[in-house]
Simulated scan of single mutants.
Amino acid sequence: MSDTTPYEAFSMVDMRAGRIARVELNTEARKPAYKIWIDFGDLGELSTSGQYTALYEAEELVGQMVIGAVNLGSRRIAGFKSEVLMLGVEQANGAVVFLKPERDVALGTKVF
């Protein structure tokens, strides 16, 4: 049994605000997905693959502020290196809505 409290467990995930810099279709993915590069300011640009194609055109995502978990390690998703988990919520039909700050904040700002 872990002595970690729920708040401590939540605090272990480093969530930051970033801005989408570039988006391309991930043609290797089994389900339609984008390759996304996010600028996190001093943390640099990190990449991810996300299933946002049902609700968003690639051009519409570029420039948007997003929230990403930046300390979960990297993994390969459909042949693409994913270094950050861009947070979103799934609708009943399976489409994913990305989470973003209510207004612009400095890139790399920590979520608490």
Rank of each mutant, 00 (worst) to 15 (best):
M1T: 13
A69N: 01
A29Y: 08
A17H: 11
M12T: 14
R30W: 08
S47K: 15
S49Q: 02
A17D: 04
E90R: 08
M15L: 11
D42K: 15
M86P: 04
M86N: 08
S49Y: 01
G94W: 06
N93M: 04
Y52L: 05
Y52N: 00
E28H: 12
R75W: 13
A17S: 13
E57D: 13
Q64I: 06
P101C: 02
P32T: 05
V62S: 01
A21M: 08
V105T: 15
P101E: 10
S74E: 13
L46P: 06
T5I: 01
M86A: 07
Q51Y: 07
G88P: 13
G44F: 14
A95H: 08
L107E: 05
F40M: 01
N71E: 06
A95G: 02
E59R: 08
T4R: 02
R30I: 14
F10T: 03
L99T: 08
V84P: 11
A58W: 07
Q51D: 04
G63K: 11
A58G: 07
G63R: 15
A95F: 09
L55G: 02
R16L: 05
Q51P: 03
V70F: 03
E24V: 04
A95S: 13
E24M: 06
T5R: 02
R30Y: 10
V66Q: 10
G41P: 02
A33L: 04
L46A: 05
E60V: 14
A29M: 10
L43I: 11
Y34L: 00
A106T: 15
L43V: 15
N26Y: 03
K31Y: 10
A78Y: 12
L87H: 11
S74Y: 10
K35N: 08
G41C: 10
G79H: 13
G73L: 08
V96P: 02
A21F: 06
A95N: 13
S74D: 15
A33C: 12
G79E: 05
T53S: 04
K31M: 12
Y34D: 01
E59G: 04
A54F: 03
Y56H: 02
E8N: 08
M86T: 08
L107G: 02
M15G: 01
V97G: 01
K110V: 13
G108V: 09
E83F: 04
A69C: 05
V105P: 14
I67Y: 06
G63C: 10
D104R: 10
E60D: 15
K110D: 07
E45W: 05
Q51M: 10
T48Y: 01
V62D: 03
L25P: 14
Y7M: 05
K81H: 13
G41T: 12
E57R: 11
W37A: 10
K35S: 05
A106E: 15
R103F: 11
D104S: 13
E24N: 13
L61D: 01
N26R: 00
G79Q: 04
V66C: 08
K110N: 04
A21T: 15
G94D: 06
